[in-house]
Amino acid sequence: MTTATFSDIDNQVSPPFYAPVTCPQNRTIMLVCQCNMITSREIEDIVLSLLKADPWQLVVPAKVYHELARRAKCSGCVPNVVDIIVRVTENYHSQQASSPGELIALETRLAKLKQQRSGNRREGRSTSHRAA
């Protein structure tokens, strides 16, 4: 005689309840913050919207929570939020990557700008000024 455990019976009675939820891109949606009921999809959407507004801004968990109008209560989710931010940011920039020729042209322009800026004296000090 075989006895069924509670989890066996529960899985047979309501399998859709335990089925993983997937979004249209076949990604599993994960509950990241239990305190605020925030899913990974919500965080990804916020990070993408922030990157579309300014691709070179520093996206941190505080910005994500601010956009969601919530706060990190126990902060147990912050490492997972950081992982999602890094993953989404890397994917965004890899999709936006240009050809290597454009990258080299950008680097040479930046080098010229840096050289122009370094030629100016700062703070109005003479070259013979010494700090004692």
Score class of each variant (00 low, 15 high):
Q12K: 15
Y92C: 00
C77T: 07
M30V: 14
N120S: 09
Y18P: 02
Y92Q: 01
L113T: 04
T89G: 08
D54T: 07
E67I: 03
A131N: 08
A72H: 13
S14N: 10
A53Y: 03
K63G: 00
S118Q: 14
A97R: 13
L106E: 05
Q116Y: 12
D10M: 15
V86C: 09
M1N: 04
A53I: 01
T39Q: 13
A132I: 12
H129F: 15
M30W: 04
V59D: 03
C74N: 04
N80F: 06
F6C: 09
T22C: 04
V81D: 01
P55K: 10
A19R: 13
A105F: 06
V60C: 05
P79K: 03
K112Y: 08
D10N: 07
Q116S: 10
R87V: 00
L58G: 01
L68K: 08
M1I: 08
L48Q: 14
R27K: 12
S99V: 01
A131F: 13
R70A: 13
T28I: 08
R87C: 00
S118A: 07
G119E: 11
F6Y: 15
V32A: 01
I29S: 02
P55V: 03
T22K: 07
N36Y: 07
S126E: 09
A4H: 09
G76M: 02
R121G: 00
T89N: 02
S128Y: 08
V47T: 11
T89Q: 08
A69R: 05
C33V: 07
L103E: 01
A105C: 00
S126D: 08
A62I: 11
Q116G: 09
R121I: 01
T108N: 00
A97M: 15
G124Q: 10
H129S: 05
S49H: 12
D8F: 15
P55R: 15
Q95P: 01
T3F: 13
C77Q: 07
S75G: 00
L51Q: 10
R41E: 11
N36V: 06
T39N: 14
R71G: 02
N91D: 03
A111L: 14
Q95G: 06
I43P: 12
P55S: 12
Y65G: 03
K112M: 05
P16D: 09
P24A: 11
L51H: 07
A131V: 13
V60A: 04
V13K: 13
A105R: 11
C35Q: 09
